[in-house]
Design a protein around this nucleic acid. Sequence first.
DNA 1: TTGTATGCGTTATCAA
DNA 2: TTGATAACGCATACAA
Lengths: 360, 360
Amino acid sequence: MAQRFTGVGGTCEDPGMPQAPQMRAPGVKDVAAAAGVSLGTVSNVLNRPDRVSAPTRARVEQAMLDLGFVRNESARQLRAGRSSTVAYVMLDATNPFFTDVAQGVEDAADEADLSLFLCNSDNRIARERSYLDRLLQQRVMGVLVTPIDPHEPHLDHVVAQGMPVVVVDRRRDVATHCSVSVDDVFGGRLAVEHLLDLGHECIAFIGGPASVGQVADRLSGARAAVADATGGGAELVVVETQGMTVAEGRNAGERLLGMARKHRPTAAFCANDLVALGLLQQCVALGVRVPEELAIVGYDDIEFAAAAAVPLTSVRQPRRELGRRAAALLLEEASDPDHQHQQVVFTPELVARQSTRRPG
Amino acid sequence: MAQRFTGVGGTCEDPGMPQAPQMRAPGVKDVAAAAGVSLGTVSNVLNRPDRVSAPTRARVEQAMLDLGFVRNESARQLRAGRSSTVAYVMLDATNPFFTDVAQGVEDAADEADLSLFLCNSDNRIARERSYLDRLLQQRVMGVLVTPIDPHEPHLDHVVAQGMPVVVVDRRRDVATHCSVSVDDVFGGRLAVEHLLDLGHECIAFIGGPASVGQVADRLSGARAAVADATGGGAELVVVETQGMTVAEGRNAGERLLGMARKHRPTAAFCANDLVALGLLQQCVALGVRVPEELAIVGYDDIEFAAAAAVPLTSVRQPRRELGRRAAALLLEEASDPDHQHQQVVFTPELVARQSTRRPG
DNA sequence: TTGTATGCGTTATCAA
DNA sequence: TTGATAACGCATACAA
């Protein structure tokens, strides 16, 4: 059967410029033709270089260089049935907490020689679903995701397709997939116990919306701490926000600081550092001294917490380690056929700084 | 020729669970068999639903649902030769400036119904190259990149492969590709002129390494401003850092504030906001009042600049717009065959805040 | 050691 | 409207 060779090397003689941009990209076929070997040999040079003699290999490699050959990953993957990329679907790429987690994921991916694609769901359910769908279609090796809601059915859909999934910074009771999270209830307790130790009796909790898992957990830990100390007559004032951003923190600060001094809490525990930074900013704007008039505890211990002009006391999560461990679980699941899902839970720790320094 | 049908629907009868995770994922072929139609019809349902009768379409769609059919993007792309994903190779995913740019890219990608993958080169040349290689192999539609060095030859390599490339936040004189950047020389000038206007005569420039394009440009603008004002006897003290991070800012602050008060600059222009925040933190730690004893100007106007306890004067770049425009150029290049490379340059503006408020 | 043939899942062309 | 078939580029099993 006469095969029509729509050659590439034929009309493009200039060795300086691999190939005119317009024409078809050269494939193994073209390389084979240029090197005067067969297609299979080129493939061997690429995948089992040891099985081809040095001189032949050299010729083939030179041909690849001349032609500017680039492997077609689609074809490769179609053939192989598997891919070597993983993805992390982040909840909010502008929150330093998640970029730090991503760094940890990247560490692990690097070691395993995988490439990592970051996707930002930006707290939008439609976007999250859209990314997961695309990732499924791309047949990536696995997906790490910090979901908006770990109970969303489309997460299960991904799992049902046989795609390895690890949920990061959230967890679910039913073990349909691995997860790596931090004990937020305990973190909330840590924060409030710290404030109680400092003698605060009226403490505000700032964060929201309450539907967010982390917020609920941290609040519940905070409540538990207050309850335990109830003999001291401590109380918790909840100020709910619409989101976990600096702007929302400012906003909440406005409300909090607007309260009559008599009833105003003397300390605030913010559900994350962004909110805490916003609150801090509002304090400065309104001339409220921190920590003298208002002590502040944040959560996450992002780099900007320590860098705030009044360094922020915060509950530290092992962000990078979170990512690393999640990636490790993913790789394990992807390689081990009879893998058992695991729920890894880290323990946070309190980092005390100036924003809660004992006055005097 | 007898075709062996390794059926999928055959052994998996439970309608509740699409397919056992172990077996091959169902393809169009399986859907066709299940729906009792031919392969081409399934394809039509997917790509030209109008060319298939309603009842048939319904049957096919039901079969897809039952089997849990997911398109194989690799095969699609192999066949089509093109992809509908773009990527943004970021210089530093932990720097809010770049995540904001990424948001802008995402805006545009969303509109065009493309998916965006974020890659973080993390300032490492090997990683940048590795990502670009993979992206090339994946035959993505195009690549946005903030390169470590826009003169690196591997960037040209990507362009030579016919891959649409838009350089973000850097530029090169030769127009081998599009670029979207901000006039950093002007930005540097803005910052320093502001300080000169406030009466400062001894100004520090903090940033580095000097090899980074932005640093060099901002410094040169700063120098020009000082030179213009030389009649006033102003001078510029350069404090070079190893990077553009908060930690480096603190570090530089230590050095700067260690100078004898007499010779110490009364104002500092930092090459970015992270460095400025570090400096600010150091000032607070050492009890140096801002702006009374040291005025500070940052660069980028990231959200944390305004949120700093002493709100930071900064040179604002249209971060999101930068990303949007870059993505738009990329799409244009990808679709328009006789596209002309463009160098878009935005103009930054100064946002004055408390960190340079005139004392008194 | 090198060459040949086949199929991965999809889409498009063309014939029915 | 629907069905059969040929690519897309690569990797592998197998033959030479």
